[in-house]
């Protein structure tokens, strides 16, 4: 009986939290992270993973969840935890497969494959840092969180969507220049 009460309360919270995540409230994501930490990391730890791997997988899963929720295409048909759990399962399965592949292959053959991709990412991350907080946030919100111009304006305290649009455009141009300046096109594209 008391359980029913609890359940309905937690369901209300679920809806509310999910709504907050959809609206880009990072605090809500932190609440979820804390709430299911043990449950989700256990999945990895009890399946031949380390604590570190468990945390990494769980965090990746939440980032996926965040992005899906933000995109507005996610309709929760099950509990949020069930959904996140299945993302964790998928990510961990992929990681295990990757590890298996790595150990089966000779190391020297796999090394040359993707060496410069993380390197490029690092460069872009560095350039983003150089842009400053406002630009970095605007670009991240736009490209990753897929925020509308209105949302970006609200979140960043811009006067209106036009300001947001202009900001985004200028920031992107600046980033492009920085990236291009650091690398000759040839280096970058090969």
């Amino acid at each position: 009986m008391a359980l029913r009460v609890f359940k309905s309360v937690s369901q209300i919270n679920e809806i509310e939290i999910f709504e907050r995540i959809r609206n880009g409230d990072e605090k809500a994501l932190e609440i979820i992270y804390k709430k299911y930490y043990r449950m989700m990391t256990k999945l990895v730890v009890t399946n031949s993973g380390t604590e570190e791997e468990a945390r990494d997988v769980y965090q990746d899963a939440l980032v996926v969840f965040w992005q899906k929720a933000r995109s507005g295409n996610l309709v929760l048909t099950s509990k949020m935890s069930t959904y996140i759990y299945s993302i964790c399962q998928n990510l961990w399965r992929k990681e295990l497969e990757r590890k298996k592949r790595l150990s089966n292959e000779e190391k020297d053959s796999s090394e040359s494959m993707d060496m410069d991709k993380p390197e490029r990412e690092k460069i872009i991350a560095r350039c983003l840092e150089q842009l400053g907080d406002t630009c970095r946030k605007v670009l991240m919100y736009y490209y990753f969180d897929e925020m509308s111009m209105q949302e970006i304006a609200d979140k960043m305290g811009f006067a209106n969507t036009d300001t947001a649009k202009t900001k985004k455009y200028k920031c992107k141009q600046k980033l492009d220049e920085l990236v291009k300046a650091q690398y000759s096109e040839q280096d970058f594209l090969d």
């Binding site: 804390k34 043990r38 965090q59 990746d60 980032v63 990412e121 594209l189």
Partner: peptide
């Protein structure tokens, strides 16, 4: 190709930022 790399770099950076944010949440191991 350049733009794809840049956009994917922004996304990766944001994902890393979110992960860093989560790492700072005290969970107690």
């Amino acid at each position: 190709t350049l733009q794809e790399t840049i956009v994917s770099g922004i996304k990766k950076a944001r994902a890393a930022e979110l992960k860093t944010m989560l790492s700072q949440v005290p969970v107690g191991s």
